[in-house]
Design a protein around this nucleic acid. Structure first.
Lengths: 229, 229
DNA sequence: GGGAGACTATTTCTAATAGGAATATGTCTA
DNA sequence: TAGACATATTCCTATTAGAAATAGTCTCCC
């Protein structure tokens, strides 16, 4: 998201020699590295202070962020961790695991990393959420479907939304107990409401669809779409 | 989204000579090309039957899909058009423009293209919408912000949602007149409700936040987050 | 006791997506 | 007549997505 490379000052026309803008060298402090969204998310996960491996991060983000944010791939997470370590926002060490399982590399956030996420969370511009709603795209292309099929698509989406709502509700119930999870709990509450709304919106769409069909007499609307491919 | 390259038959281990999987040659019919989401969106825009240039498509999609789907870049649109032409789903011709402006290449959907989008709209699996809600991510990381800053972020988001709602409302008012826009109108109505809900969710969050702060006595929550970076 | 399957852990590869910048060409206007 | 603006397209690069490959260790079951 948010592309803000070289926004400040006279960096507009960068020389051929400059090349890699990212990851300011240890030497030239003051110039802070500009990081993509995923970096901040990973650093955010680490900002709770735990020492985690890439694998841990993947699993944890799948669990915690899935309701309102992405599920990054392993490759992204491991890549981000390397980048973050290079700029000094995290540090790592290998740990040999006593109980079974092979050695792993675990990461902790550094003081600079903490300062950086904090700055990001406080000062980054508020950007619009990214939404790619395939179901709505298909509804928008309603002339390509028959009403029955559209109802089916909406119905399935409704089910998905309700399932997500229930999961968010369950997770919220589990998280509210812990005082340390106050904000994650808030986000889960938001998620529950969000998916409830998504479900209701699907119901409303189904009603609107019935109305549309009724209004112009027995599925006349997609008249020309009816001729089979 | 949905990765389904080489799902069928014995395509698993592809020979070195095969390379480009996409865009089945004219010769090997029956084997339908598998296209990414963006292709279907572009083909969907063309499924209304108009002859459009890449530039037209960009502008139109910015206008019509922005509420619930992406805004593709020019490079993506032009790229997709080339791919779609290669697989025979669209055809193009150059037109010299009488009134000013340079020549342009315009695209129309072919019969096979029409059959393909229709099949896609009817039969593609219903996939969950993609949501990347940066505001919620920051809220989830509430321990990094002070309450005032969080309120600010939520407030800005609320404004964004309300602005979008108004735009959707206005567009809906404009589109409902045209009978041909029945389904796009439905999608706009959904959009209006969606952004209204997003706005209300922001308000609810603000209320929850007040409650949280009140509950544990004058902003005690982010106690340790208060020490400045 | 040996293999199948499952879980932890990380790397590699490729495609899809995002979006700035560059390049034309033509209008309109100050 | 330069400069701003709109149309029209291409190019380049970084980010994001996700499958698959690789590897070590455990457990279960025949």
């Amino acid at each position: 998201m948010s592309r803000q490379v070289g926004d400040r000052g006279g960096r507009r026309l960068r020389s051929v020699t400059e090349k890699k803008v990212r990851g300011a060298q240890a030497g030239d402090d003051a110039e802070r590295p500009t990081l993509p969204a995923t970096s901040w998310a990973v650093l955010g996960l680490l900002s709770f202070g735990e020492e985690l491996s890439g694998y841990d991060l993947k699993k944890w983000s799948d669990w915690s962020l899935r309701f309102f944010y992405w599920s990054p791939s392993f490759s992204q997470i491991y890549g981000e961790l390397k980048r973050l370590e290079k700029v000094g926002y995290v540090s790592s060490r290998m740990v040999a695991q006593e109980t079974g399982n092979r050695d792993k590399r675990v990461y902790v956030i550094t003081d600079e990393g903490m300062a950086a996420v904090r700055r990001w969370a406080r000062e980054a511009p508020v950007e619009p959420p990214v939404l790619k709603h395939g179901v709505m795209l298909r509804l928008w292309l309603g002339h390509l479907l028959e009403v029955e099929q559209m109802r089916d698509v909406l119905g399935r989406h409704r089910e998905y939304a309700e399932t997500m709502r229930q999961r968010a509700e369950a997770d919220f119930a589990g998280a509210r107990a812990e005082a340390a999870w106050a904000y994650p709990s808030l986000a889960l509450k938001w998620s529950e409401r969000y998916y409830a709304s998504e479900r209701d919106l699907a119901d409303a769409m189904l009603a609107d669809l019935d109305e549309l069909v009724a209004a112009d007499g027995a599925d006349g609307v997609e008249g020309e779409a009816v001729k089979r491919p």
